[in-house]
Design a protein around this nucleic acid. Structure first.
Length: 669
RNA sequence: GCGCCCAUAGCUCAGCGGAACAGAGCGUCUGCCUUCUAAGCAGAGGGUCGUAGGUUCGAAUCCUACUGGGCGCGCCA
């Protein structure tokens, strides 16, 4: 909304100036008042037309009752007179476009100085002073993670990185439902059905994957077990006794597996929030008293909700056609519904509940950041100075699209209960699920005998799905064999390390490159692909660039070995002076690199990591074109510093892009 | 029944606040490693953008209807 031109990057500034100049001219010349933000200046389909074009004349022609081309011509002349810097030739072309060509040397000089100055911060926007809480992963702690959880965590983590680069303070929370039916089922498996402890070498969460499916098979055969299931659930909810203790143990052991899996993918958290702590602390009871006092809750005495406390949603758009649009928060038996607890929890995230958790340090993480956790009062520890969890300006819940209705209920309930600002700042980051392609479903032993379907849903209860760790292992195995083939000089440990980085690159890119609206029909061959539009292709482009710099340091007089220093060194030679003619591939690379900050901004505003994924592929392709068309080491001396500068700048920008996507950036591939 | 999402090349997907020939990857075919990493590159072939209407000088993009898929609509979580 605001500050569009601050820290938005070179190209964005240019666009901003063009919009303003265009709007100014339209107003002065014809008295047409347009919001500059609505005047598009985007690259035309063919660069022969120019670097940026606007179709605004086509839109205005009718209103002005003049031929589009004539309007375009007048705009062209007007812009030419406005003295825009970094702009070269301005043209108008049929049917009525105005095109500008930038001054590539001027852009390159400014861009490379900025990259050399800001290094890993290139693409970071000015601080907004706002705090965003992002909740993602949120797995039931009762079995191993599957590929649907991986999509959640990869999208969530990528969004976190995008928001951080957009200038927000971001706190990452991972909610652990340790008192739910799913945990109860596994506890029942151990305690009531006498399941053995996992054999040595089998991870606890993997073992529970099968155990959970076993328990559900028993439920099918022995319906009377349902009563025991309820019994266990109640014992766990009450939080005392052997069963509750076992539940906590199961949850913690499974969580340890989940964390190991996610850390392996480069995903970390700031805070774990436990359902049991929300219950113990009485978040809902507290919220209920408060809401009742201020009269925003309704106690129904008749109708289908008689005896319940509800929030009225019947007048809201999207709810009016429902059979029973109001939402029950307290059942007629006095117990709270899930949404009720969620409302209290959401209020806590915004810091307006009036109650807080107790906290303790939970564990160190591989990225060096401590992970904290809510906890029972007796375990509470002093938190580091300045640590303040929650109190967000905005809350983003990363949950798949099947939760849309509940998230809508949550947001509208907040509004109806008097928290309009919090409702406005509650975001459901939704995405389509990961399902199995018919081929994959069949390989996993799913029942594909019935009517042919396009996709098959995963089912934890049936034990049908792809485990996150199995996908990672398959990717690592494939990458390892490629690495070993290409680098016979590497030892086994080095091969394994590199293979891991590549596998993570492949999996993470696969999970974020799709639009969030796209249902992923998971296929092993697609997910493990390492050629074309894939993570390893991006990593490869970066590794190749690093390789050039290594060789340049060996063969070019004075060129430093470190990429950052090489960039500073080459930029200091002022290689883009007056009259320098850039090759098309050089110019294209400059323009693409200049676009990074605005891509971060779009991805953040639209909540679409795929925008960044697409940009990453464009940037890598841009470098590959440069690589093929503009030799560096064999370039004439007059061009060599310039090309070293471009390569070094690319290494920096691509590293930043990969970091934002959460992909490792190995120096050799 | 109501609501949301999806339908674009053989396959997997971009594009969808209208506009300059509909793009990419994979797969297929033809080439390119004694010059910076061939996980690469060049080229060929492949599409009446689900169907039918409508709005517009102009529609894959906006509107309506339909068809076919996916999902959601609890005093479950």
């Amino acid at each position: 909304m605001e500050g569009q031109s601050t820290g938005g990057g070179l190209l964005n500034d240019l666009r901003h100036r063009l919009r303003t100049a265009t709007a100014g001219f339209l107003s002065a010349e014809w008295g047409v008042e347009l919001d500059p933000a609505l005047i598009t200046w985007e690259p035309p389909p063919d660069i022969r037309f120019g670097d940026l074009s606007t179709p605004i004349s086509l839109r205005l022609a009718k209103q002005l009752r003049r031929p589009p081309l004539e309007v375009a011509g007048a705009l062209r002349d007007g812009l030419a007179r406005s003295g825009l810097t970094m702009i070269g030739e301005i043209t108008s072309t049929p049917p009525g476009f105005v095109n500008v060509r930038v001054d590539p040397a001027a852009v390159a000089t400014a861009l490379l100085s900025e990259i050399a100055l800001r290094r890993q911060d290139y693409g970071i926007h000015a601080p907004s002073g706002q705090k965003v809480v992002v909740e993602h992963t949120n797995m039931n702690p009762n079995k191993a993670a599957h590929i649907g959880h991986v999509r959640n965590a990869c999208l969530g983590d990528c969004l976190v990185r995008i928001l951080r680069r957009s200038g927000y303070e971001v706190e990452v929370q991972n909610y652990i439902d340790d008192t739910g039916a799913q945990v109860a089922d596994v506890v029942l498996g151990f305690h009531h059905l006498g399941a053995a402890a996992p054999p040595a070498g089998v991870r606890f969460d993997h073992y529970c994957w099968d155990l959970y499916a076993d328990v559900h098979r028993r439920f099918e055969r022995e319906p009377e077990l349902k009563a025991t299931q309820q019994e266990y659930l109640h014992l766990i909810e009450q939080g005392c006794g052997e069963v509750a203790r076992l539940a906590k143990e199961v949850a913690q052991k499974v969580l340890a597996g989940h964390l190991r899996t996610m850390w392996g993918l480069g995903i970390h958290y700031d805070l774990l929030t436990w359902e049991s702590d929300i219950v113990r602390k009485g978040f809902w009871r507290y919220a209920f008293e408060h809401l009742r006092e201020q009269g925003s809750l309704v106690h129904e005495t008749e109708g289908p909700n008689a005896g319940c406390w509800v929030v009225r949603l019947r007048d809201l758009p999207g709810f009016e056609s429902l059979e029973n649009p109001d939402k029950v928060l307290v059942r007629s038996n006095g117990t709270a519904t899930y949404v009720a607890k969620d409302i209290a929890y959401q209020l806590w995230k915004f810091g307006v509940l009036g109650l807080d958790f107790d906290y303790r340090f939970y564990t160190d993480q591989p990225n060096g950041h401590g992970l904290y956790s809510s906890c029972p009062p007796e375990e509470a520890e002093q938190m580091p100075v300045g640590a303040r969890f929650g109190r967000a300006d905005r809350v983003v819940n990363v949950i798949d699209i099947r939760q849309k209705y509940l998230q809508d209920v949550l947001r509208h309930s907040l509004r109806q209960l008097g928290y309009a600002r919090q409702a406005d700042n509650s975001v459901h980051f939704s995405y389509e699920v990961v399902a199995l392609s018919p081929k994959t479903a069949q390989e996993l032993g799913g029942d594909v005998s019935g009517e042919a379907k396009t996709v098959y849903a995963m089912s934890g209860r049936k034990g049908i799905g792809v485990k996150a760790d199995d996908l990672l292992a398959a990717a690592e195995a494939k990458a390892a064999s490629e690495v070993a083939q290409r680098h016979p000089e590497m030892g086994p440990a080095e091969v394994a390390g590199l293979a891991h980085d590549i596998a993570v690159g492949a999996v993470r890119y696969y999970m974020v490159r799709f639009h969030t609206n796209t249902l992923i029909a998971f296929d092993f061959d697609d997910a493990l692909a390492m050629q074309g539009n894939t993570g390893p292709y991006l990593q490869y482009a970066c590794a190749r660039a690093r390789s050039i710099l290594r060789r340049a340091a060996d063969s070019v007089n004075g060129c430093p070995r470190d990429p950052g220093q090489a960039l500073a060194w080459s930029v200091a030679k002022e290689p883009f002076g007056e009259g320098v003619e850039l090759a098309p591939v050089e110019k294209a690379l400059v323009m693409t690199m200049a676009d990074f900050p605005s891509k971060i901004a779009s991805a953040a505003v639209e909540y679409l990591p795929s925008i960044l994924a697409e940009y990453a592929f464009t940037l890598a392709s841009s470098f590959t074109d440069f690589y093929e068309g503009a030799p560096v080491l064999s370039a004439p001396p007059s061009e060599q510093a310039r090309r070293i500068a471009l390569v070094a700048a690319f290494v920096q920008v691509m590293s930043n892009v990969l970091d934002t996507l959460g992909l490792p950036s190995p120096s050799v591939l």
